[in-house]
Structure formats: C-alpha cells, structure tokens
C-alpha cells in the first residue's frame, strides 16, 4: 500500500502521575472517514487528540499519523495535519486578514498560494470584505469558521477537531457539519470529538470513551442495533434506541457516571 493509513493507534497510554488519562487505546482511521470521538468530560478524548496532534508525548504505546511516529516526529506531524480546539485560539487583537496571514506564515504558505487560500477562507467563513475587522469582535459562529479556515490553510489531508462546535447555535453547527462533510467527500480524514448526540449521527464511525478506555467502536447504526439486541426489544415494533440511550447505557454498564 503506497499511502499509509491516516491514523493508526496501538495500546496508546498517557499517565499524569498516578492518574491514567488514556488507557491502552487501539484503533485505526481510514482515508476520508469522519471518525467521531464520544465520551463524558474527563474520559480522555482531548488527551488522545493531543497525543495524535503532536501536542503531548504518549507515556506508552505506539501511534502513527500520516505514517509519522507520534513519539519522534511530532513536529513533522503538526506540519501535515490541521488542528482546531474547543477554545478558538485566534488572536483577538489581530484583524481577520492578519490572523490568516500569520497562520499562513507558520504553515509555510506564502505568495500566490497564500492569496488563493485567503480568498477561499474568507469565502468559506462568509467574511468577504471584512478582512480589516478585528477578530475579537466577531460573533462566535464566524470566529469558529475562521479558526477552522486558519487550521486548514495548508490543506492538510487529516483534520483533528476537538469539540469544535461548543457554544455555537444549532444553525451554525449544522453549517459547520456541511463543511466537514464536504472535506470528507474530497478525501480529507476528519477526526472529531463532540458531546452533541445529533452530531454523532453525522460520523461514519463512533468511538466511545469512558475513564480513559475505549468501550465501543462502530458505525452509529450498528451501535444502535446492538443496543436494541441487548435490551431484547423487538426491532420491528419498538422504536430503536437513540444514540444518547446507547451512550448512557454503555457508560453505565462500564460503571462510569455520565456527567454534563
């Protein structure tokens, strides 16, 4: 196989002192896949994403992103992926254009390519003609799309989104997911964590995390079917369980508490 799988993780573990935030997690993500990461707060979603994006060194286990080692090639990984976290971290005192140009420079995008990408981002975020406005004053939905734009200014093949739609209204969230869907169709792999159940439905596959462990990994449909089977209900008569129900009962069976 010429192209390595976008994400391969084997027994990945991260400990902070005595606390095991991520406990021997293994999975693979295929090209163009929208891979959803679900779990209560503190389940280890963000820690896993940080290890995969080169922000955090794993304690044990192995992992490759775009064929690059998460232990020794963290800077190379960061050049190949796009990452956007729940805290939109654009510089609020810079203008929209200055933010775009800054991240363009940091990702090594310059010249006519930068101009083209800048136009594309402004169009995507619906911010044409507002390049000179200071970023801090933008409504949250626009900020979030701009942050996504700057995170993918270098057109990475793999995108990591850590709860990207937190605090955004449902309409803006819907539009955000339309964008993500579009990326996926063009072969971009999207790794996304969320705690909105309706967003989980958009994912091709879902990984459920609880207390640092991976407790389920399948397509949303098969996760629901399996839950129905466990409950012993007749699939033809009773309505199928929602993802939320799947999520809660899975976590409770694992002995965890669903918070927030």
């Amino acid at each position: 196989m010429a192209e390595p799988r976008p994400v391969v993780v084997e027994e990945l573990t991260r400990r902070f002192g005595d606390f095991t935030a991520v406990d021997r997690v293994s999975f693979q993500v295929g090209r163009g896949e929208i891979f959803g990461f679900l779990g209560p707060n503190g389940a280890g979603k963000t820690t896993t994403i940080k290890m995969l994006t080169g922000l955090l060194e794993p304690t044990e286990g192995r992992g490759w992103v775009a064929g690059l080692d998460v232990h020794g090639q963290r800077r190379e990984i960061r050049a190949r992926i796009g990452y956007m976290s729940q805290r939109f971290s654009l510089y609020p005192d810079l203008t929209i254009r200055e933010n775009i140009d800054l991240f363009g420079g940091l990702y090594g995008v310059a010249g006519t390519r930068l101009e083209a990408r800048r136009r594309w981002i402004l169009e995507m975020a619906e911010l044409q003609g507002q390049e000179g406005s200071v970023t801090g004053t933008l409504p949250l939905g626009f900020k979030q799309r701009l942050a996504l734009g700057t995170a993918i200014i270098h057109e990475p093949a793999i995108l990591f989104l850590d709860e990207p739609t937190s605090g955004v209204d449902p309409v803006a969230r819907r539009r955000f997911w339309d964008l993500i869907d579009g990326f996926s169709h063009r072969g971009v792999t999207v790794f996304v964590s969320t705690h909105y159940m309706e967003e989980a439905e958009y994912c091709h596959r879902l990984a459920l995390m609880n207390r640092g462990r991976l407790i389920a990994l399948d397509t949303p449909r098969r996760l629901r079917e399996e839950e129905a089977r466990i409950r012993g209900s007749d699939p033809s008569s009773a309505p199928p369980p929602s993802l939320e129900e799947v999520f809660i009962s899975r976590v409770e069976r694992e002995g965890g508490a669903v918070l927030g």
Partner: peptide
Amino acid sequence: ERGTMEQLASTPVA
C-alpha cells in the same frame, strides 16, 4: 491566558 499558545503549538513552528 488567551489560549493562543496551544494554537501556536499545534503549528509546525519551532
């Protein structure tokens, strides 16, 4: 304080 350090850190900047 603004969380921009994490965004910087996610880029290939040395």
